[in-house]
């Protein structure tokens, strides 16, 4: 049985269309034109317990809206969803005690107080037994290496440290389902890596179900076996990360290490030349033609080394986004 079950979920907003200029603003006082925005249209998705699912999509694709619907922050226009058997937007206290939402850009902690005060509050509102609380807090602070920072006011913490505290606050009550909305946004590479490492470890240990949105492919590649691409409010792809490349990219990149004295003239016959920095040259050709192209090149050039790779993931994803936008 899926732990998250989304059926035909739709959410549209009516937004006030503000026109340019003062006169239009004055007219807007009396008559307003509204435009309906379909943030989420007809999403169907099932997630099994223990899955770590990434939500990918361009800005405004409906990822965050979907997470908001699943956390019960907003009501859908139509469709249904259940998480652990609860309808999220009923916002029952039972449901709230069983999941957590972390938003990279939003603060859930008390700004002026040390994080440990927020944690104490969480212990109470989530009804965490004393020993369980102490154990969880110990484990989490050790894993994230923030034990010395517990007593410092949150406003004095760095962005990365604050994110760690947010994660602790969200995990203290051992949620069964965790929604992460761009948890590594604005963090430096090391901090991103630490958060990834932690999430991976924690998810493997606890087997909790996590849905994550992120723009960093590194996050996704490191953490999620299953990727759901959303664009224009609906699911465009659902499968493994490698599958995206197979499905949406028809080309491969051949990198040649040319021998000394060998020029790169004439390579454009075999494919699109990506770059030439002797002795290295890169060409792109259709996936089906790779064997034929390769043998021709090997016949005609002096080659020291050859590598055939998929195009970078970011590129595939962005061309996927673009193709959705065009349709």
């Amino acid at each position: 049985m899926p732990i998250i079950d989304i059926q035909n979920l739709e959410k549209s907003y009516r937004i006030y269309q503000k026109k340019e200029g003062l006169w239009a603003a004055v007219r807007g006082l009396f008559r307003r034109e509204f435009k309906t925005v379909h943030a989420v249209r007809n999403i169907n998705l099932q997630v099994q317990p223990g899955e770590f699912v990434a939500f990918l999509g361009p800005n405004g694709a409906g990822k965050t809206t979907t997470l908001k619907l699943l956390s019960g922050v907003i009501y859908p226009s139509s469709g249904t969803a259940t998480v652990m058997g609860h309808v999220p937007w009923e916002r029952s206290m039972d449901y709230r005690r069983r999941f957590a939402l972390v938003m990279g850009q939003k603060n859930q902690l008390w700004w002026d107080l040390p994080a440990q005060e927020s944690f104490r509050l969480h212990q109470q509102i989530y009804c965490i037994p004393k020993t369980e609380f102490a154990n969880s807090l110990n484990e989490l602070t050790e894993l994230l290496d923030v034990s010395e920072l517990l007593g410092r006011p949150v406003r004095e913490l760095s962005l990365g440290e604050r994110m760690k505290m947010e994660l602790i606050a969200a995990l203290l009550h051992s949620p069964e389902v965790l929604f992460l909305d761009e948890p590594t946004i604005g963090l430096d590479v090391i901090a991103q890596h630490n958060i990834q490492k932690f999430l991976k470890y924690y998810q493997e240990q606890r087997k909790i179900t996590i849905m994550l949105t992120s723009h960093y492919m590194k996050d996704v590649a490191a953490l999620c076996k299953r990727v759901v691409v959303i664009a224009k409010g609906s699911v465009q792809y659902d499968g493994s990360l490698d599958g995206i490349v197979d499905k949406f990219s028809s080309s491969k990149i051949i990198t040649l290490q040319l021998s000394e004295g060998q020029g790169s003239e004439g390579l454009e016959k075999y494919g699109v030349v990506q770059s030439v920095e002797l002795p290295r040259a890169q060409i792109r050709c259709s996936r089906l033609q790779v064997p034929a192209t390769l043998s021709k090149i090997l016949d005609s050039y002096e080659i020291d080394d050859v590598a055939v790779e998929d195009p970078p993931l970011e590129e595939v994803i962005s061309s996927l986004y673009e193709s959705v936008a065009e349709n």
Binding site: S71, R97, L101, N107, I125
Partner: peptide, 12 residues
């Protein structure tokens, strides 16, 4: 600014 979400998500 959306901070109210905290009170919809957390059991308080």
């Amino acid at each position: 600014d959306g901070e109210i979400k905290k009170f919809l998500v957390q059991p308080v």
